[in-house]
Design a protein around this nucleic acid. Structure first.
Lengths: 123, 123
DNA sequence: ATACAATGTAGAGTAAACTCTATGTCAAGA
DNA sequence: TCTTGACATAGAGTTTACTCTACATTGTAT
């Protein structure tokens, strides 16, 4: 299947402006039809989902750019891409650990509030 | 104990400029000495650590501002503050869940790469 | 007395990631 | 044919959270 930018925007939940911006940054590079309109493919779709995943896990555009560059170069860069993902995996792991710690502390604080409210009868 | 902005900067690992910016945004409000220099207290220190925690868990400055405002109003706002933290706790929980999902998918991808590299003998 | 390092304020500048505006093209329906 | 509506580009504007600059004061060591 092929999609116009409007359809693709709805599918990916990324604004049209954002899609053009991503293309400008060489993240997503859809084909063009005879009238120069963008034609996004299913491959573009899967790739866009992956980009969103990288973004949602805190990878900056610059780094995604680098990954996209390697991807465009084909199989010879598989090693390097896997290396990038492995490094990123570690950062993700640390993010999760940090958030869990924050969660524990937050729970302490909430408990403290609960007691204070009880004590001062502000229930 | 009381700390100058320089000492406080070292203690909190926040730049001097950042501390002044936080004060400008009414997040941290240290006392001043006779020559108008900032005097940070241990209470400011504990509060600053908490601000960092909120920031590190994705709370925007605007919201921390609101929290700081309530805090300045005293015990009568304990309920409202607890409510804010409880809501934030939920967002934290969702962040963690999302990251764990991303992690699983990332592991899949890394596995896939491993196989591809094996298959195409790019070891 | 003087130098100098830390501090003060006000306001400008920066970086990242969008988001929007102005203007123009083009295919399809009334 | 005329009018929409979706799409195109180039470039300006926005938001968030700092970060830095310029310039004036002040406290301390020589």
């Amino acid at each position: 299947m092929e999609y116009s930018i409007g359809e693709f925007s709805r599918l990916t939940n990324l604004g049209i402006h954002t899609l053009r911006y991503y293309e400008h940054e060489n993240l997503i590079t859809p084909k063009r039809n005879s009238s120069n309109r963008r034609c996004y493919s299913d491959k573009d779709l899967a790739w866009t989902y992956f980009i969103k995943r990288l973004k949602d896990t805190g990878m900056p555009i610059k780094e995604i750019q680098r990954y996209a560059e390697l991807r465009a170069e084909g199989d010879l860069t598989l090693n390097e891409r896997m290396e990038m993902l492995t490094v990123h995996r570690e950062s993700l792991n640390e993010q999760i650990k940090a958030l869990q710690e924050h969660m524990a502390k937050l729970d302490d604080k909430i408990d403290f509030y609960r007691q204070e409210i009880e004590r001062t009868s502000l229930k």
